[in-house]
Computed example of a mutant assay.
Amino acid sequence: MKRKLVIFGLTDVADVACFYFKRFANYEPVSFTVDAAYVRESSFQGLPVVPFEESVERFAPEEHDMFVAVGYTRLNAVRKEKYLAAKALGYHMASYISPQATVLNDGRIGDNCLILEDNTIQPFVEIGNNVTLWSGNHIGHHSVVRDHCFLASHIVVSGGVEIGEQCFIGVNATLRDRIKIGEKCVVGAGSLLLTDAEPEGVYMGQATERSRVPSTRLRGI
């Protein structure tokens, strides 16, 4: 029998999470929830929207799990806050691990994690609680991803890397082996990190600028 699931959030992330839990996991999403101040509609994607303040009365933790489907707003602080609040109410926090992901770390993955298709998680990796790995990432052997991180898509984390709490890693970033990323770091899209990153640092890849030469004048294209 499928376990009943309440999803915190009303954004695209919540919509995507509901799709995956419903299609590929042993869960039946039954409701969405957000703080009462943010309830604008009575339903979302055909399911009722219930104020978070009423969730325990409407959806007993003994009979329902919860998943906090929030992105990296305020460097993951909002997702962390709601995750801790839901746990304090007694909810078991669900995780979704895609059957299309390659997971070789013997289940060293925390709760409230969202791990989408085409991720490769090599042996001896540790992934904390409340971590999002969007599609197509490589997490190298002996690496550690601490709690409340968000990794976008097509990121290469080489072997033995440590990523501190509440970090955001953008698409196509590359992290060299055996470096440490301090907590609350932002590593922008396309960045290449070869040395340790300081806590609360911002590391941005260089954006490509428009060439002043028209494309019709470039040879070999």
Rank of each mutant, 00 (worst) to 15 (best):
Q166I: 00
E54G: 02
F24H: 09
V39S: 01
A85Y: 05
D35Q: 10
C149D: 05
L10K: 06
V56T: 11
F21N: 07
H64E: 12
D35M: 08
N130Y: 03
F8N: 01
R79A: 08
F24S: 08
S42I: 08
L75H: 10
S153R: 00
T132S: 07
R219G: 04
R210W: 13
V78Y: 03
L194Y: 08
Q100P: 06
E165K: 00
G220H: 15
R219T: 09
V13Y: 11
S31C: 15
L75Y: 10
H64L: 09
A189W: 07
V13A: 14
R217C: 13
N26A: 05
G182C: 05
G110I: 02
E53N: 07
V13I: 15
V144S: 07
K22N: 03
E62F: 12
A37I: 10
Q100W: 12
R176F: 11
G71N: 09
A85E: 11
I155S: 06
S215Q: 14
E28K: 08
C18S: 04
P48L: 11
E183L: 01
N130S: 13
L175W: 00
V68S: 08
F59L: 02
S135G: 00
V187G: 01
P214T: 10
Y83W: 00
G9C: 04
E81N: 12
N119L: 13
E162L: 09
R23A: 14
Q166F: 03
L104K: 04
I97L: 15
L89Y: 02
G107E: 02
G136L: 09
D15P: 00
Y91G: 12
S31F: 09
A189F: 10
A14E: 07
S42G: 10
R74L: 11
A86W: 07
C167V: 12
R178F: 07
S55K: 06
R212K: 15
G170H: 05
G140Y: 03
H92D: 15
V213I: 15
L133C: 09
L75G: 10
K82F: 12
R40C: 11
G205N: 05
V6E: 03
E57V: 09
Y96M: 07
S143E: 01
M93L: 15
G182T: 05
T102H: 06
K22G: 00
I179P: 13
R3V: 13
K80C: 02
H64F: 12
N130P: 07
P214V: 10
G110P: 04
Y20V: 08
K22M: 00
S31L: 10
Q100T: 10
M1P: 06
P48R: 13
H148M: 11
V30G: 01
T120K: 14
N172A: 01
N137P: 03
H64Q: 09
F52Y: 06
D196M: 12
Y203M: 08
R210T: 14
E81P: 00
C185W: 09
G71K: 07
L5C: 08
V16P: 03
D118T: 14
Y83N: 03
K22V: 01
A101R: 06
I109V: 11
P123F: 07
A207S: 14
A86L: 15
I127M: 08
E57Y: 03
I109H: 06
R146E: 14
R210S: 15
E165R: 02
V131R: 02
L5E: 10
R40F: 11
M1V: 08
A207V: 12
A189S: 14
L116K: 01
V186W: 11
R58D: 08
F59D: 01
E62T: 10
